[in-house]
């Protein structure tokens, strides 16, 4: 039977090779633009601001300050890539960040500064990861919409923080051994930047170079289909929320160790920029996927855009507008891209 059948099929369609090659070349050109438009925009912005603010914008002190200011957002956003790639929203990260800021500051205050720094860090990270676990269990076990779960839990985490802090800034007895971590340098580079680089490399490795990363993306693109194909989607979702909570908590530690106090309302400001950067990032380098290089470029575009405009004396409200606009722009770009892919077929 196999012999009689093997001749049964013919290629469904063949296209003249020359025309095919031509179209292919056209598509590769579009492909390149699709992937690199973001980085190009970043370069263009740097050039424009250098010309617009000569001697102020393109200085090592200004740029270092810009980068250093983005480290907390970067840590949150790198963790956020996991749930986003796995197809779920985690908007509790602001709450988790606040909770971690308060947890770390409060453990020192309660022990009059005698709490060993590594232990305080451990406790804080455990709190963040547990917060992620709570989200995950609600989403996976009870099949509740992740958006709703994390909207609610984020608010609860914020509430707990305010309760613990009693609505006050927690600032007593935070040891210098701890603040040295946030303010110190390694080979002349501020520690938070070193942390971001290391974390980015780890996240990049996991997402791009391990089967786990592939399964995370597969879960995001089609949870039920992936599950039926053998992907342990439940465990992947749990992992995604735990990593996201862990990273938000890490960002909280960066905050407390840099500022030296715990404020019970810090988290919210990092939510929007991390989403904006992640979505902006998903339109470049590897369009259609949340990816680390894209995220970093997205962050840079947001940070440099705002910094450059501020140097021009643009008013304060521009920041929110710029970030919100970037988020919507990113989603619009993704939509347009999907439409063009469909028309291609």
């Amino acid at each position: 039977m196999s012999e009689s059948l093997s001749s049964a099929t013919q290629p469904a369609e063949e296209v003249a090779p020359a025309r095919h090659a031509e179209r292919r070349a056209g598509r590769i050109g579009l492909d390149l633009l699709d992937r690199w438009a973001g980085p190009l925009l970043l370069v263009a912005m740097i050039v424009a601001f250098t010309i617009a603010s000569p001697g102020v914008f393109l200085t090592s002190s200004n740029l270092l300050a810009v980068v250093n200011n983005q480290t907390i957002t970067a840590v949150v956003a790198l963790g956020l890539l996991f749930p986003l790639a796995a197809g779920v929203f985690d908007i509790s990260i602001g709450g988790v960040l606040t909770l971690s800021v308060i947890t770390s500051a409060w453990t020192f205050q309660q022990t009059a500064g005698s709490m060993p720094v590594p232990l305080a860090i451990l406790i804080t990270l455990a709190v963040g990861a547990s917060a992620g676990l709570v989200n995950a269990l609600l989403v996976v076990r009870l099949s509740i919409d992740p958006f709703i779960v994390t909207l609610g839990s984020g608010s609860i985490f914020l509430g707990i923080s305010q309760l613990v802090a009693n609505g006050q800034v927690v600032s007593r007895d935070i040891p210098t051994a701890f603040t040295d971590l946030g303010r110190g340098e390694l080979f002349g580079i501020p520690n938070p930047i070193v942390l971001v680089v290391v974390l980015a490399l780890i996240v990049f490795y996991v997402l791009e170079m391990t089967p786990l990363g592939r399964m995370i993306y597969a879960t995001g693109f089609g949870r039920e289909q992936s599950r039926l194909a053998g992907v342990p989607t439940h465990r992947i979702l749990v992992l995604a929320f735990v990593v996201s909570g862990f990273c938000a908590s890490l960002a909280g530690l960066v905050y407390t160790s840099r500022i030296g106090t715990g404020q019970p309302d810090v988290g919210a400001q990092y939510l929007l920029p991390s989403y904006a950067a992640a979505f902006l990032g998903s339109t470049m380098i590897k369009p259609g996927r949340f990816n680390v290089p894209g995220l970093l470029v997205g962050l840079a575009i947001l940070a440099i855009g705002i910094n450059g405009l501020q140097l021009q004396g643009i008013p304060f409200w521009v920041i929110s507008t710029f970030q919100g606009g970037a988020l919507i722009l990113a989603v619009v770009l993704t939509k347009l891209r999907k439409l063009s892919v469909r028309a291609d077929g």
């Binding site: 693109f221 089609g222 039920e224």
Partner: peptide
């Protein structure tokens, strides 16, 4: 819709 992982490539759909 129990088979197709939309957004991933043919290769990725085969190997997943």
């Amino acid at each position: 819709d129990q088979k197709r992982i939309t957004g991933m490539t043919v290769a990725e759909n085969i190997t997943i």
